[in-house]
Design a protein around this nucleic acid. Structure first.
Length: 626
DNA sequence: CATGAAAGCGCC
DNA sequence: AAAGGGCGCTTTCATG
């Protein structure tokens, strides 16, 4: 072990760097915040030596030099959870490391789908699993608490953190090869610097615009609430036979917890006073109270739930339900898309830096959290609140019907292929099949309906599920499904083949070879349970093939845009939303940048589409337009 | 008072 | 009897 505190001691490191083909790297920092916290140690294991660089003693310039030596060496660099270290090193030194292997991500690929709650396997876990060694966890934490200079103990354990990564990688590669995920592994590793870059870039939110939206929603929620309480109260007094406040609260499932309250409410019989307490205690946000209200006051029988889909069916008979649904929407706007977003504006950059998890979803899709920027409301007012820096533009490009094109390519269904080749799409073709008309005769309304059929049937809805989703009868849904599969005989056949294979193999595979594994459950209480489990695997498996292939395509596109970017820092990736990629670009190059993005996206998609033409569309604006 | 499950709903 | 895939966030409610 070499503990390095002066740049004069760098000679041995350079020599070791030259003769090593693989490096293992880790950092110790004062905390998790890339902008607020600082680097303490940088550990680099070469072929037969481990160097511990003291970042405080060496200073930023020297650390930058060391990191640039690593990056320019082109050697493969092993990390566990590379994104964290990459972001820190890039932020502190200006250098991004690109040729990386992440033992955490590789481990997720090996267990994709069957890792249960353990979505982020720790270094401790993989080292124990593959090397039979238990690392000391406590010392790692000592960097965060009362840090006063590096201790001998900390240095020893810092070395341990990079000691086992090569062995872990070797064993993981055997599993990756066994499951034929070499291409997916390569893609995910290439993607790590891209994702790190996107998180560091962040996106700008126009506070004033957002606040205005929030205030409007708040106002409307308040009005809606007052109005709704009054209507409900009028209906209560017209039907209720309850004598006391307590009886009413029991009926409405309003919790009365203390004995004191219980006694109080039992004694209240005056209507005006009951109303006062009703306004105070009845909670419009409580599904259980709304359920009790609809059941016990409005007399609705067999209400399956109070979710929107079940409620809207009853609007014609019970107009109050429209108000409840409307209140819910406003409440959602306020609580989920309101001032809470301001907490996520980074004080150092003034931007929102979401966390993008490249392997959190079992299908291979990205997820986004803190905040989730993949579920911003589609209403243009909300997306338009995300803006470009002065002198820049936001470029949003999305794939046109990515999953339906992939579905056509995966199943080789001639009707779908023909539709896209002739400039039509699957929705129109499905409408033609289901409504038994020629494609050119399909009306807008029919096409719209067919959209719902495509989504539902493709992802495994049966006649019951489809009738529920569409709000039609089971017989009607049955007819639609029959016409769908009769119209797409090849899709029907291939889909059956795929789901049978999923059941047999207990995994599914995307076009790039990304796997989703399923538990091999063998114990079932009865045949019904077995069939239920089989249907679940078939649905999730087929969905994975399509949705996961979509994820493959978008991830390949992100890499292509990042690695082949001819505009340097004038073009930055800022976000991805499944089939959409958003960049921020200098105004002067925005037009060319959009063309470049579209070209990258279409090229990688075309590789998977065969005869079906790839298509991506883009918009340039001072804000996020979608 | 903390924690976790469940319901509900925003997006693709 | 039967209820479409994938997420994350907020709220309520039960539990310890």
């Amino acid at each position: 072990m070499e503990y390095i505190t002066s740049i004069k001691e760098i000679g041995k490191f350079q020599k070791e760097l030259g003769i090593s083909s693989i490096l293992s790297v880790d950092t110790e920092t004062t905390g998790l915040d890339v902008w607020m916290d600082s680097l303490l140690l940088l550990q680099v294991k070469t072929y037969d030596e481990t160097f511990v660089f003291d970042c405080e003693k060496l200073g930023e310039n020297n650390i930058s030099y060391i990191v640039s030596l690593i990056e320019s060496s082109g050697k493969l660099v092993l990390f566990h959870n590379a994104k964290f270290d990459l972001k820190f090193l890039k932020q502190k030194t200006g250098v991004m490391i690109h040729n990386v292997y992440d033992t955490m991500l590789a481990e997720i690929l090996i267990y994709q789908g069957v890792n249960g709650e353990n979505k982020f396997p720790s270094l401790y876990q993989v080292v124990e699993k593959y090397c039979g060694v238990k690392l000391n966890k406590e010392v790692r934490e000592s960097f965060y608490k009362d840090f006063k200079g590096v201790t001998q103990e900390q240095i020893i354990y810092a070395v341990e953190d990079v000691a086992y990564l090569e062995k872990v990688r070797e064993k993981q590669l055997a599993e990756i090869n066994r499951t034929k995920q070499e291409k997916v592994l390569e893609l995910e590793m290439k993607l790590v610097p891209v994702v790190s870059d996107m998180e560091l870039n962040g996106i700008l939110l126009d506070k004033a615009v957002w606040l205005q939206l929030s205030d409007i929603s708040k106002d409307n929620r308040e009005k809606s609430s007052v109005d709704l309480y009054e209507k409900i109260w009028q209906d209560i007094i017209s039907v209720s036979t309850q004598k006391t406040a307590l009886e009413l609260f029991d009926l409405l499932k309003v919790q009365v917890k203390t004995k004191k309250d219980k006694a109080l409410f039992e004694s209240i019989t005056d209507l005006d006073t009951i109303k006062e307490y009703f306004l105070e205690r009845f909670n419009l946000n409580s599904p259980s109270q709304i359920f009790a209200l609809l059941t016990n006051i409005y007399g609705i029988k067999d209400l399956p739930s109070t979710n929107e889909k079940d409620l809207v069916k009853l609007v014609p008979k019970y107009p109050i339900i429209a108000d409840i649904v409307s209140y819910r929407g406003l409440s959602k706007s306020v609580t989920s898309f309101g001032e809470n977003y301001f907490e996520y504006i980074n004080p150092a950059t003034g931007r929102i830096h979401t966390t993008l998890n490249q392997l959190r979803a079992d299908t291979g899709r990205f997820s986004s959290s803190s905040p989730n920027l993949q579920n911003i409301k589609r209403e243009s007012e909300y997306r338009n609140a995300f803006v470009a820096e002065k002198g820049y533009k936001l470029i949003s490009c999305d794939y046109s019907q990515q999953e339906y094109r992939l579905c056509g390519s995966i199943t080789k269904e001639p009707a779908i292929i023909q539709a896209y080749k002739s400039g039509m799409d699957m929705h129109t073709m499905t409408a033609s099949k289901v409504f038994h008309v020629e494609p050119y005769q399909v009306t807008k309304e029919q096409r719209n309906k067919a959209k719902g059929y495509n989504f539902g049937i493709l992802y495994g809805a049966n006649k019951f599920g489809l009738s529920y989703a569409l709000g039609c009868t089971v017989d009607e849904a049955d007819e639609i499904i029959t016409a769908f599969f009769a119209g797409y005989p090849v899709l029907s056949k291939v889909k059956n083949m795929i789901v049978n294979l999923v059941w047999k193999n207990k995994y599914s595979s995307t076009l790039l070879g990304r796997k989703r594994f399923f538990e091999n459950q063998t114990m079932f209480s009865d045949d019904k349970e077995l069939q239920k489990y089989r249907r679940k695997l078939e649905k999730e498996g087929f969905n994975h093939v399509v949705q996961g292939s979509g994820a493959d395509v978008t991830k390949l596109a992100l890499c292509k845009i990042y690695y082949e970017n001819p505009f340097g820092s004038d073009l930055k990736l800022v976000l991805t939303v499944h089939d959409e990629i958003i960049c921020e670009a200098k105004e002067e190059i925005a037009l060319q940048a959009k063309d470049f993005m579209i070209k990258c996206m279409e090229e990688v998609e075309q590789e998977f589409l065969g005869e079906i033409p790839a298509l991506a569309e883009g918009r340039i604006s001072s804000c996020w337009e979608h």
